[in-house]
């Protein structure tokens, strides 16, 4: 009997049909259709005309796209390590069963359940000039006010602060879960050796959760590359495009300038960039393991 259960049958495939049909119609087809659109001169209201790779040429020669790529790379490059290190720190600090720790764990994860518009609303009212919380604090100490949302450099930083505030919960939770998985006897041995905390951290804890660190980093890289709502709602990409991410560029080309052919081309390029970044990370991590072994 068990033998027949394991046998290959067409009918068994029926279980995957519902998902596969959704997968094909809503992911595979639009992916192909998007590539087709990117090869056409086409706007929101129609008018398809095949133009080959011209849309790609326009995107790649657009200085604003270059700026958006740079902004996004900086954003990912700073926010992801921050999220990983801060998440790891919080996990280490709160890996206890006390009431206080459990309360703080709940607190740090709580912001993740808010929607992006509420997060940005909150942070906008913190950062706005004159009336914002930061303005009041600066005023109280008599410091020179900073235009957090309107100064080159600060605007992307402010978007990053809101993002870290919003996203810190998940990395912390994943690290906590990983910490719980470390076998206790490793620590027993360390205690017998009278190892210092730092040694325990670098020799036992961190190596044991290496794969989780990688997992968190990859998840965050993929997520932060897709930055859009925070930037659009807090700074609208400004000033002078210094906080405009790639996704916002795509949105603007498609829905403000109507040019969905060019928008589609930009989104295929974004797809490639994310794919490369994730693969690079994966490659780095596996190569490291090999050299470690």
């Amino acid at each position: 009997m068990a033998e027949s259960y394991r046998r290959s049958r067409w009918t068994n495939g029926l279980f995957v049909v519902p998902y596969l049909s959704v997968f094909l119609t809503l992911l595979v087809f639009p992916l192909g259709w998007g590539i087709w659109l990117s090869l056409n001169k086409v706007d929101l209201f129609g008018g398809e005309r095949f133009i080959g790779l011209k849309n790609y040429a326009r995107v790649l020669s657009d200085p604003i796209f270059g700026q958006a790529v740079k902004n996004t790379l900086i954003f990912v490059g700073v926010s992801v390590p921050t999220l990983v290190i801060l998440g790891l720190f919080l996990a280490l600090a709160l890996n206890k069963t006390t009431k206080g720790s459990s309360f703080l764990r709940g607190l740090f994860f709580a912001s993740s359940i808010l929607s992006v518009t509420i997060v940005t609303l909150i942070w906008r009212i913190v950062f706005i000039p004159n009336d914002g919380l930061m303005a009041l604090i600066f005023n109280y100490f008599g410091w020179q006010p900073i235009g957090f949302l309107s100064t080159t450099g600060w605007s992307l930083f402010s978007v990053g602060v809101a993002t870290v505030w919003w996203c810190i919960g998940l990395p912390m939770m994943l690290f906590l879960a990983a910490l719980q998985q470390i076998p206790k006897d490793l620590y027993e041995a360390a205690a017998l050796d009278n190892a210092s905390r730092w040694r325990v951290l670098t020799r036992i804890t961190l190596p044991s959760i290496k794969s989780t660190i990688m997992l968190v980093a990859i998840i965050q890289v993929v997520m932060q590359f897709q930055l859009f709502g925070q930037a659009q709602l807090m700074t609208n990409g400004g000033p002078a495009g210094s906080s405009r991410p790639i996704v916002m560029y795509i949105y603007e080309i498609g829905f403000l300038r109507w040019d969905i052919g060019m928008g589609a081309a930009a989104s295929q390029i974004l797809f490639l960039i994310i794919l490369c970044a994730a693969m690079l990370q994966y490659w780095v991590s596996t190569r490291k393991e090999e050299t470690d072994a």
């Binding site: 004159n130 006010p145 309107s150």
Partner: peptide, 17 residues
């Protein structure tokens, strides 16, 4: 004035800034 967005500028003038 510097760094003011639209709502800030509107209320700043109203407040004599």
């Amino acid at each position: 004035t510097k760094n003011m967005d639209y709502p800030a500028a509107v209320s700043a003038f109203a407040n004599g800034a």
